[in-house]
Nucleic acid binder design. Structure first.
Lengths: 251, 251
DNA sequence: TAAGTATTGTGTTTAATTGACACAATGATA
DNA sequence: TATCATTGTGTCAATTAAACACAATACTTA
């Protein structure tokens, strides 16, 4: 039965969708969770719709729970994408009938959607990528290896990255992207990757330590070439405080 | 005929609305454009709905054109308000039948709306406030004099102000809020009002001038008590450049 | 097993920015 | 003509950021 594999779209609010840019960090690379669509092999951001009694935030959490298996993901809305032509930006018009989608579902997908963009920061290793009904693959792709995306999803991704860069200036980042214990070079690489530029190792360390959001541990990373770097851990109280109050914003 | 005074709501996208926080600056006070609803005398932000072939931004411009008479207003979306209970936050349930709204229109207003918040910065003296069909008054209210607002509009206003404060740190503000020519104390007062704190006159001047976004004129303000202050004007090229590239954001 | 090497840990020195403050110049008012 | 609030133009000290140097560590390899 189709009804068991596909959602009942008439429970969702019309015209409204959401798309998520899920960032992870692995092997010194910033990665994004993408789906490959069955229809035309195009890559797309994970997205979804809003139930009648859900907020956008709850809807986004639900979608991400389905795609990653994770609860309580760090999530921020960053922009609304509402160009009436946004679904026509990349030419391929989906022919949903080729797959297990009913005629009525095709009507649902052919309406105009105003999409709220969310970005999420997650710990790479905790995610178990799951495709949705429209996709055959769900996996992490390195930022540098992403080429074309479905519809306006490339714009959505670029805007998410831009937002993340601005956030970095006055909010701490990393608690949600790194494992519990991490080294200073790893944290620095994360910052460099998000900002897209190199930072001075010694000045970086001084600045990060001054924020008081991480604590040095009595442990070093084992089994690495050359000198073993010390492990650090985020200080949850100070991190949360910094999230709320910001980091040095002037004026 | 009702059809001539009221919009045809079935041309709008369901479930989607927008609300605008219009900021103006007058007599050294930050002001917000508000409407008083006919129904219950509650004050509300100017808002509206989205036509089938409009982007959110175009819809917001259209709404603001109707409320202010102005085109090309500086507009930024800042947040989506989607709590399913947002229309029930202030108790008063509107009884639209008392006014010139048809039964069908009441259905329209009773649906759940997800609202995109925009803030606008406009030059106070250019605005000609116009009420809409649901309101009897449209006027500027000083930020300090605003008490309760309809539904979740107070939250929307607070979030807009918070966003504006953050913007101020890495983007210039003022071009859209001040008249063509202005004095340094006027610009400073604007910054102080937005930030909600006092700034040192001399340090403020040094910092603003360093941004190279304003030019000193060979003119002073006439007819003021005490020493006449020099007039300045924004430098459009450098201002636009600063808007795009940001002001000192560190890292 | 000892020298080589890449990487980490911990600085210093210099320049730029910010914060706190002082005083003369102006021009209406008394 | 003296007064006074306000503007214009600084200075100085403290803080912050940028550039740079060198020793310590631990794996590599000869």
């Amino acid at each position: 039965m189709k009804q068991e594999t596909n959602p009942n779209y008439h429970h969702f609010l019309k015209h409204i969708s959401l798309d998520c840019v899920v960032f992870g960090f692995h092997e010194n690379q910033l990665k994004v969770l993408l789906l490959r669509m069955k229809k035309n092999q195009e890559w797309a951001l994970p997205g979804g719709f809003v139930l009648e009694n859900e907020s956008m935030e709850i809807a986004a959490s639900r979608v991400l729970k389905e795609r990653t298996g994770l609860d309580h993901i760090f999530l921020n809305q960053f922009h609304v994408f509402s160009d009436p032509e946004r679904s026509n930006i990349n030419p391929a018009v989906p022919d949903f009938l080729e797959f297990d989608i009913t005629f009525q579902d095709a009507d649902w997908f052919n309406q105009r959607f105003i999409s709220v963009g969310f970005y999420a920061l997650v710990e790479f290793s905790l995610v178990q990528p799951q495709p949705d009904v429209l996709s055959d693959i769900c996996e992490w792709i390195s930022l540098s290896e992403i080429s074309a995306l479905m519809m306006d999803h490339r714009q959505i991704l670029d805007k998410a990255l831009e937002t993340l860069r601005l956030q970095l200036v006055f909010q701490p980042v990393g608690y949600n992207l790194l494992p519990d214990k991490f080294t200073m070079p790893e944290l620095q690489k994360l910052y460099e990757t998000i900002l897209g530029k190199e930072l001075d190792r010694r000045n970086f360390q001084r600045k990060i330590l001054a924020y008081n959001i991480i604590s040095k541990l009595d442990e070093v990373r084992q089994g690495v070439p050359h000198k073993a770097p010390t492990l650090y851990r985020f200080n949850p109280e100070n991190y949360q405080k910094a999230l709320k109050e910001g980091l040095g914003g002037k004026w």
